[in-house]
Design a protein around this nucleic acid. Structure first.
Length: 887
RNA sequence: GGGCGCUUAGCUCAGCGGUAGAGCGCUUGCCUUACAAGCAAGAUGUCGCAGGUUCAAUCCCUGCAGCGCCCACCA
């Protein structure tokens, strides 16, 4: 057998195995199969850039699930792809062009689009490489891009169908407008941030000269577009003013005083200026009162001709000038500090300006209703559950969705405007004549669709919809969607709505929502903050497996994961630990033979114990994974691997493997390798590379072509019959004895090189026999010369004595200390134990002394407490006696 | 203004009705022929604060405080 390196070197193996898997086609799913289907569609990353650690988390979790299901025998599809990410990508390319001194307008639409495609190839390639490094087992041949021909067709069909159903309409509405991106954005793309501002009180004179009304506003420049002033209908102060007219200062326009119940009397002066074209509240008020709506800004946020003398000024400059002029007029009554929330563009952080413009909308309510129902009824489940409420609350209050964007990168809206009859033609095919008047004087709508419009179709558009494909039949609805909470509204909700509308079926049965990864101070990672953690850097340093295991172990956190490299460091040691356990096992194989028909009677106690523990681990890990409890599953695996298999079993197996009993050697060696093989399979979904490497090193006959196509270990495995609970319990006793001896050795600083002799007395005959049969394990692990088995402790002069109890069995370990140590250490050790004993005993006795406890607690608990008391008293007596001997 | 989380060992985090766990860090001793990225032993916690429910509370309930997130048109 070839020598294995002393430490695991991921770099040498990861690339190799990934290519091997690809070449073998293991990631491919079957459109038709006798196996049950399991499917996941990947949340497509934006083509804009490199993956961050959040993607790594997202991919890792999905890959764990997918590999687990694949091994369980499902026809498993994990469908990959990328999102064209309209606004984000356009911005990136615009920035890149700006560096070359080019504006997109100079290039023109077509050339600009070509540039984006160019860039998409480059950036998309990088993402692919990154994903591969993470080991994701997606079916690459099914990879989709939201601007693919097929998906574009799906988008068109969706648009046309919804339009024909009256669920898409075009309207001149007040929308969120980003003056920098020069496009409308949806409500979700506006981020509100608390900002310090002012509340300015401005005097508006009445036209009849009977006085003035003072309005309060945070945006004085918008007065240029005021078309009314409103007061509350029951506000006694202003009752008589309603119906009168005001002469708007600076502008000179006459506007009415109206009454509207949305006005809050207590706020400011109780008088509100109404600017329907630049404020969402005012817009509503304007509609109710049929007020004129005057836009005063152009698409760049600069005052237009409606702003009179202020034309050409940018928002902030206009404000300054308006305030100056008002002051000069004496109309500025006062200015007070006022905190307000300012909406900013999600992408570029520019302050959003509500603007009137022609946009396309989805009438969302008819689609929302069924989408609410399927979640309320539990047809779609959120994990963790509490996200259900978040989802539903948003859905109950959902508003029409503005889907048009004034961008060049994206799905062009399939609508053609007629220059003659002015009507709109909406259809699948590119139109050449007007569908109404047959005129050829038509032009396609210049706008593109919101990126999320195409993402909403992802679970079925990627499988070939609108064609009725075999893939759809087999894999839709998908099994689970894995994503983070920040896109529940953007994406999850819309997929549910469109899935139900177009497929008449839910898009996925479970939505697993995971945390967001933040930096070690809890800040959201972003490029601008420079606090991003590059997963590839971590992969380079620690290996993919270590990163994956760490992410799985950390994911249980509530809402966010503060990424901490120390944890990664710890788990990378874990990978190395497994590697070395393998090295040991394989070395052992050089001296023993494998026997697939290993006879139960040749098994050692440790063999029976480890198989039993393996069985428990299979049970625990499988059930944790079924429930998406990744952290728990990782924990079970970690404990079994390190604390049972390595710390105890491997050590226990040494005296056997290096011993003389050939039958035992064969049996033990076989159990060792078989357990390792099952453990590798159990671990594979989490750490695919090292487990494949290990698997491939296993002796012939045991290792098949690849670990990733082997079954996930189950309780049906006949090997597990070799396990025994009783053996596990006996090993527990041995562990306790060994630990007690080590404790005495350690505290007394008895050199590990010194082999000591001691005596052990056990009060239980059967246990005593069992222990004696297994003496070798105790002497080996505790580094003993020999053990005298006694019926009772006997003479304990100048000895360290330790009472070990497991269940009802009491074992006394007596270690003669003569000539070995200074007794002062042993006295300290005993006193320390006595102190703890005192404390525990007090707690127990207090409990047992409480009448209500005896009366109300379950018998089981009382018995347990009594047992504890007996043990503690025993121990106390022993400790006291020990002390007295040294005095 | 509504909603949701979080607060556990020095740090990063699990756990969750019966006397607290992991990794890193720390102390002591070990190159014991798988692993010094290791082994063994050990120290460290009024489980945010105050009430309540319970025989029993870190865990359930209420209130409070601190931190964070999401949603919301109070100009």
């Amino acid at each position: 057998m070839a020598e294995l390196p002393k430490s695991y070197e991921p770099k040498n193996v990861e690339k190799h195995w990934y290519e091997f898997w690809l070449q073998k086609g293991y990631f491919k799913a079957e459109d038709k199969s006798s196996k049950p289907a399991f499917s996941i569609v990947i949340p497509p990353p934006n083509v804009t850039g490199v993956l961050h650690i959040g993607h790594a988390l997202n991919c890792t979790l999905q890959d764990i699930i997918v590999r687990f299901k694949r091994m369980q025998g499902f026809n498993t599809l994990w469908l990959p792809g990328m999102d064209h990410a309209g606004i984000a990508t356009q911005m990136v390319v615009e920035k890149k062009l700006a560096k070359e001194g080019v504006k997109r307008e100079q290039l023109g639409r077509e050339k600009f689009e070509a540039k984006v495609w160019e860039w998409k190839e480059e950036s998309g390639g990088m993402i692919l490489d990154q994903q591969k490094r993470l080991g994701i087992s997606v079916d690459w041949e099914r990879s989709r891009f939201t601007l693919d021909e097929g998906l574009s067709k799906a988008v068109r069909k969706t648009f046309v169908d919804l339009y024909n159903a009256g669920l898409i309409y075009k309207g001149n509405r007040l929308v969120n407008w980003c003056p920098r991106c020069k496009t409308a954005v949806s409500d979700l793309e506006v981020k509100h941030t608390e900002t310090k501002g002012s509340l300015w009180h401005i005097a508006y004179p009445l036209t009849d000269g009977s006085g003035q009304l003072v309005v309060a506003t945070t945006r004085p420049e918008t007065m240029l577009g005021d078309t009314a002033v409103a007061v509350h209908p029951e506000d006694e102060r202003y009752k008589n003013w309603v119906g009168k007219k005001i002469k708007l200062p600076l502008v000179g326009r006459e506007i009415p005083v109206i009454s509207d119940s949305t006005v809050v009397k207590e706020f400011g002066s109780g008088v509100v200026k109404i600017t329907p074209a630049h404020d969402f509240n005012d817009y509503e008020t304007g509609l109710r009162h049929k007020l004129p709506m005057i836009s005063i800004f152009d698409e760049r946020g600069i005052v237009n001709e409606n702003g009179g003398g202020y034309k050409g000024l940018k928002g902030p400059d206009a404000r300054k000038k308006v305030l100056e002029d008002l002051t000069a007029l004496g109309a500025l009554v006062k200015e007070e500090p006022h905190a307000l929330s300012v909406g900013r563009c999600d992408r570029c952080e520019t302050v959003i300006e509500p603007m009137l413009s022609d946009q396309w909308f989805v009438k969302i309510e008819p689609m929302a209703k069924p989408a609410i129902k399927v979640v309320e009824s539990g047809q779609i489940k959120f994990v963790p559950e509490n996200w259900t409420k978040t989802y539903l609350d948003w859905m109950y209050n959902i508003k029409d969705w503005c889907i048009s964007r004034q961008l060049w990168w994206g799905h062009r809206i399939p609508a053609w405007h007629c220059g003659d009859c002015k009507k709109v033609t909406v259809q699948m095919e590119d139109a050449t004549i007007c569908g109404h008047c047959k005129s050829k004087n038509i032009k396609q709508d210049p706008d593109v669709l919101d990126t999320w419009f195409s993402s909403a179709l992802w679970p079925f558009s990627t499988m070939g919809w609108p064609e009725n494909t075999a893939a759809l039949k087999t894999f839709y609805p998908t099994s689970v969607l894995v994503t983070s909470f920040d896109i529940i509204f953007f994406w999850v909700a819309r997929m549910i709505m469109s899935g139900l509308y177009f497929m008449k079926e839910i898009p996925f049965k479970t939505v697993y929502i995971h945390a967001l990864v933040r930096d070690e101070r809890g800040q959201k990672m972003s490029k601008s903050k420079g606090n991003t953690v590059d997963p590839l850097g971590l992969v380079e340093e620690y290996g993919t497996d270590a990163l994956r295991f760490t992410l799985a172990a950390l994911v249980a956190s509530g809402r966010d994961i503060k990424f901490n490299e120390d944890r990664l460091d710890g788990y990378s040691n874990f990978i190395n630990k497994i590697w070395n356990a393998t090295r040991f096992s394989l070395t052992a194989l050089e001296i023993i033979k494998l026997d697939s028909n290993v006879a139960a009677q040749n098994l050692t106690l440790p063999d029976q114990y480890i198989v039993y523990e393996l069985e428990q681990t299979i049970k625990n890990v499988t059930s944790a994974l079924e429930d998406y409890k990744f952290t728990e599953a990782a924990g079970f695996l970690y404990k079994f691997t390190w604390n049972e298999f390595c710390d105890w079993y491997l050590e226990l197996s040494k005296p056997v493997l290096y011993g003389v009993d050939e039958k035992q050697k064969t049996a033990s060696g076989t159990v060792l390798i078989y357990t390792l093989e099952r453990l590798a399979r159990l671990l594979h979904p989490f750490i695919p590379f090292v487990t494949e490497e290990i698997y491939q090193k296993l002796p012939g006959g045991l290792a098949k072509e690849s670990i990733m196509i082997q079954p996930y270990p189950t309780l049906e495995d006949s090997f597990l019959k070799l396990g025994s609970v009783k053996a596990s319990e006996e090993i527990e006793l041995i562990k306790s004895i060994v630990t007690a001896i080590r404790n005495i050795r350690g505290e007394n600083r008895i050199s590990p090189a010194v082999k000591i002799s001691l005596s052990i007395a056990c009060d239980d005959k059967n246990a005593s026999k069992a222990l004696q049969r297994n003496t070798v394990f105790i002497t080996s692990l505790a580094r003993l010369e020999k053990i005298d088995w006694l019926a009772s402790p006997g003479d304990t002069q100048k000895s360290a004595v330790s009472l070990v109890t497991v269940g009802k069995i009491r074992v006394t370990v007596v270690i003669p200390l003569t000539g070995l140590v200074d007794f002062a250490e042993e006295i300290k050790r005993v006193e320390k134990e006595l102190e703890k004993n005192r404390h525990d005993l007090e707690l127990t006795q207090r409990k047992l002394g409480t009448e209500t406890f005896i009366k109300n607690a379950p018998a089981e608990i009382i018995a347990q407490e009594k047992e504890r008391q007996v043990q503690l008293l025993d121990k106390q007596a022993q400790l006291k006696e020990s002390l007295s001997r040294f005095n």
